[in-house]
Structure formats: C-alpha cells, structure tokens
Design a protein around this nucleic acid. Structure first.
Lengths: 326, 326
DNA sequence: CTGAAAGCGCTAACAT
DNA sequence: ATGTTAGCGCTTTCAG
C-alpha cells in the first residue's frame, strides 16, 4: 500500500500539497494537480482513513446498537440506517445487543473507544441513566431517554387506530394484549392510545398481560379463555407485535377459531408477514424512522440543534382479519 | 478524553510502560502496575483504538458486504456474522450493496481504505474478477469466486431433497422454477441436484424460467398455465426462494388452487415465514454459515490456511404443502 | 523492569 | 501556490 509520502515523492511535491489535493483541491495549481493525480493513479493510492481520522478526530463512522437484525423490523431498520449513512458519506459499525443490557453498555464503551462520530441506539436497557452523560451525539430510536433526542413512531396514534379499527369492524368486547409493563415508553403509549379511543367510543378498556415467556412459547390460553368469558366474551384483539399476532392466529386456528369469523385481530409493526397471513396491522414507518435518525444524528455531529422528540405517523393497514363481513 | 500520556504522567511512568500495561501486563512490575491501573481509573482512560490501529496495522474490524438486511435471510446472516465477530473480539462494518455491482466495488474500496482486517462478501457481482487480486483476506458466502474461500450450503443436496420430496408426496409432473441463469453457482447447483434426482427416480426434468421482474411482480401465469398443460400437467413445484413460494401460494390461492390438494409446493431458504404459511422448504443453515464465514476469515487474517470450499448441509423441512394425503 | 525516541499516515498551522 | 514542521495517540525497537 502506497502512502501519501510515496505520492509526494513521485509527483515531486511535499506531502502537504498532496494532502491539499485531497481536501481542498482548489488550493493547488492545475499543473501540480495533474502531476499528483497521475502519481496517485500510478501508485494506486488510496488515503488511509485511519490515519486521517487520527488527525482530524472525525471517523465518519456511526455506531448502531440494535437488538438483532434477524428480526424483520430490526433488519429493516438496520437497512434503512445503513442506506442513509452511505448516502451521507458515513459508514456503519453494527452492534447486536440481543436486548442484553450488559452487552449494550460494553458496546457503548467499544464504540467510544473506536471514536465513532455518533451513535444510534435502539435501546433495551432498563437503566437509561447509563447514557445520560456520554460526551458523544446519540439519537435513540423508539425509546425515550432523558436528554437524548429520539425518533419514534406515533404509538399513541397507533393504539387509537387499532382500537377504532376493532370497534369499526364490529367488536363489542375488544382487548389489548401487552407485555408486562416495563420502561418501554412505546408500549405504554400504544396502550394509552388504545385506552383513550376505547373510552372515547364508549367501550370498556380491557388489557391482557402476558410475560415474555408466554409470548415466546405461544402460551395464549389466557386469550382463548377470555374469548369464552360470558361476562366479557372477547371478540377483538389488538396484540402489539406482528409475530405475536401471527403466532396467536395459528394458536387459535388449531382450536378451530378463525378471523374474522370468530374474532377480529390486529397486530403492530407492519411487516410483510402480515400481508401473507391476511392480518390487519398498524404500520410503523421504519424506513423513515431510520432515515430520520441518521439525519438528526448527523446534524448533532455537526453541532446543529435538533428536536428532542420526533414522532412519525403510524398508519392502519386493513386486511381481512378486521373485516366486518364475518 | 484522556490519553496514554495523561495516564503516564499521573502514574509517574513513561508512555511505553503504560502501553506495556495494556498489551503485555506481565512485563510490568506489580507496584507500577497498581499505580497505572489507579491512574487509568481516575482518568477514566480508554485507549484510542484508531491510534492503536495506526501503529499495529490491525483494526480488528471486519467488513461485510451484503445485499440488504431487510430480507429475512440476509438479516439472519448479518446477525450471525455480527454475533460471531463480537465473540471473537472483532467489530463489524456493514455495507448494503442492494445487489448493485457498482456499489459493491466502491464498498470494497471503502473497506480497503478503512483498513479492515478482512471482508465477508455476499456477492451479487457478475464479474468476480474484480476480487481476484485484492490483497486482503476475503471469504465469500454462498457464491463461488475463483481463488477466494467460500462457504455455502449444499445446494446440490438441497435440489435433490426437493425433488425427492415432491416425488415422494405423489407428484408425477414436478417442475423447478428458477431465475434466468446467471453466474450464480448456487442456483445452478440447486438445479443440478434437482435434475439429478428427478432422473435418478425416473422422472422428467422440467424447468420454468422466470425473469427477476416476473418474480418481483408475481407474474406466475407461466406456472399456472403449465398446470393446465395436458401433456405435462404440473402437479409439483420447487421454487427456489421462500418469498417466491409464498407469493406463488397466494397467486394460486386467488385462482382457487390450494396445496396440497391441487399441487405440491416446496421452497428454498427455511425462513420463518414458511412455518406460518405451512409450506415445505429446504432449510439453509444460515447461522452456521455466518459463524463459519467468520471463523475462516479470522483464520485467514491470522495467516492460517483454510479450505477453499466449505459446504454445510441443507435439510428438508416438511409441512403440509407436500403432504401425500391430498 | 523501565525510559527515550522513532514512526504509523495524515492534517494543519505557519512560513515563504 | 507550495514547503516545513509539529502533532494526532499509540506501539515498538533499542538502551539502560
């Protein structure tokens, strides 16, 4: 690998001139410019970005901490972020946290040590204090963290849309199925929106809480039981997560229950899966979220100010699982 | 951010000693070791990996070029690679090529300039010569490139399994649906395996070729037409790609054709989607592929020799779309 | 076991 | 417009 010095020698100039050629070409005369270009060509010279970073203290690398790209939503998010980064001349250092808080912390440290210019965080961390005083631009996706700009989908609105859709499709006993409440502001907002709209339309607000294990193992008996409850025979389900919705549909199908005949079902995320299964869902504008996260982060890197909270609209995708004609 | 010099000053030693502490702690005495550790702690010192890389000429960064993490298979691959990298003390610079050859080339250049230690390539490039003489360890995933070690799934075997499954499930007029032939060795091997097994079992080998546009737009008329062909009324379809299989299933369903009643269907990839749709598929061991790619690449980085071609077994996942009782 | 000093490849004053 | 030179933060001989 040839260095800037090799190029300088070959072109009979000093390294500074070659450096200028790289950074402010207008400051070097036509004639030497040609000589340098020729030398670069002949030596197949490519500037060493590491060395450059060491001098400039800018790596043009953005670190991304994301739970797991093999989950459709996160895969799409990673892709959107990567694509936006590339468009803006940034590279992407990808870290998979697997939702593990310890890993997340050590990855933050790693990214700091690697002098990334900024970090996009899709945090699962319970303890957001950890990020509070890190001296590096951070943007959070779909998680609210004090003092850190965030971009999220309008989860409240999503909840509203889901409630309205269930009720519009004729449900009289709708229910929301949720995780055990944590610090996830997004889930809370979904639930709040759902509640708000139920009450506004004169319906009861009912919630079924499942543990992560129950979701993972598809133990949905609590739900099918609720459908048989004479006091409140659940006939409409908003379950916050597309894969959960898919799993639930299968669970019910095995018990002879079909949408929209026996119950209405709507998920949350807007992944392709739902299209194949003909399930309604609330769509998260994941590509836009990724792009916005990158845009804001770059602004922060460039010392511009950015809004503390950005909300992108959720939208309803209606399919047969919430169709009236049942 | 404190530097090695700050630590040295505070601990009353020279920078070299601190550096030794970092790299070969056994070479520094207990007493100074303590002082240095204390100083590091007090200053919250973290070595600058960029500077380190510049000296050592090792970044411990691996570049990955992959079409698009939002596609389930590639998302899973990226995740597997990331995870293996992390386990081995490497970081991952992610590049999304979108199957664009020009982008791929420029990303290669970028990775070279950033001095990554090695590259994992999931190439879509038509012209593999481009990689021939790059002075950096490369491992290719699921693509055969001259002079570059590759890891792939046993596509021939996959084709064999698919053919056998269709025939076992009672098909008399099986067919393989494929892309227009390109340089993709993997597709070729799938087709060869399929052909081999068909002929071995005394069946005709028939192929339907679709363009990328036809796949993308779900224009599968050629297939449904073939099902009505009196000479060879297709009753079993091996379509190389899970999403294609899913799209085809839907396409057929809209025309009143259902698996396994009217035709048998088997896909290729082994994604979760197929589980929800109850479609048989040939499973690609994607996590193992990613892990092996990383393992081989690291060996090459460490100047060890590695096999030129590694093949991991494909396996059949049987579901109702190829069940006999139709 | 520790220190001094050169150097990794590039940038950025400062000078000319 | 170009050259000189001092770093960026760390590693690594080479001495002592």
């Amino acid at each position: 690998m040839s260095t800037i010095r090799d190029v300088a020698n070959r072109a009979n100039v000093c390294v500074a001139t070659v450096s200028r050629m790289l950074n402010k070409p207008e400051m070097v005369s036509q004639s030497t410019r040609k000589r340098i270009l020729a030398a670069m060509e002949e030596l197949n010279y490519h500037p060493n970005e590491m060395a450059r970073s060491l001098s400039t203290k800018r790596t043009h690398i953005i670190g991304v901490i994301i739970p797991n790209t093999s989950l459709p939503l996160f895969g799409a998010l990673a892709d959107a972020i990567e694509s936006s980064c590339a468009d803006n001349g940034y590279k992407l250092l990808l870290c998979g946290s697997r939702g593990n808080a310890d890993k997340e912390s050590s990855m933050m440290a790693m990214l700091l040590a690697n002098k990334v210019d900024g970090i996009i965080l899709c945090a699962s961390l319970r303890n957001p204090d950890a990020y509070m005083n890190i001296d590096l631009p951070i943007v959070s996706v779909d998680r609210i963290i004090p003092n850190i700009p965030s971009v999220s989908c309008d989860n409240f609105k999503g909840g509203v849309l889901a409630a309205r859709e269930l009720i519009d499709s004729g449900c009289r006993y709708p229910v929301i199925v949720n995780n055990v409440p944590g610090t996830q502001t997004t889930a809370i907002m979904r639930s709040k929106g759902y509640k708000y709209e139920c009450e506004r339309l004169g319906y009861e607000y009912r919630e079924i809480i499942l543990t992560n294990e129950q979701f993972f193992d598809c133990e949905f008996d609590a739900i099918t039981d609720a459908m048989k409850n004479p006091d409140y025979p659940v006939d409409g389900i908003f379950i916050t997560g597309d894969t959960h919705a898919a799993n639930l549909k299968r669970f019910c199908a095995r018990r002879g229950l079909e949408t929209p005949r026996d119950y209405k079902l709507i998920g949350f995320d807007g992944t392709d899966l739902m299209d194949y299964l003909d399930l309604s869902t609330i769509s998260v504008p994941i590509v836009e979220l990724g792009a916005l996260a990158v845009e804001l982060l770059i602004k922060r890197i460039e010392k511009q100010s950015v809004p503390e909270r950005s909300l992108l609209p959720a939208s309803l995708i209606r399919r047969s699982s919430t169709s009236k004609d049942a």
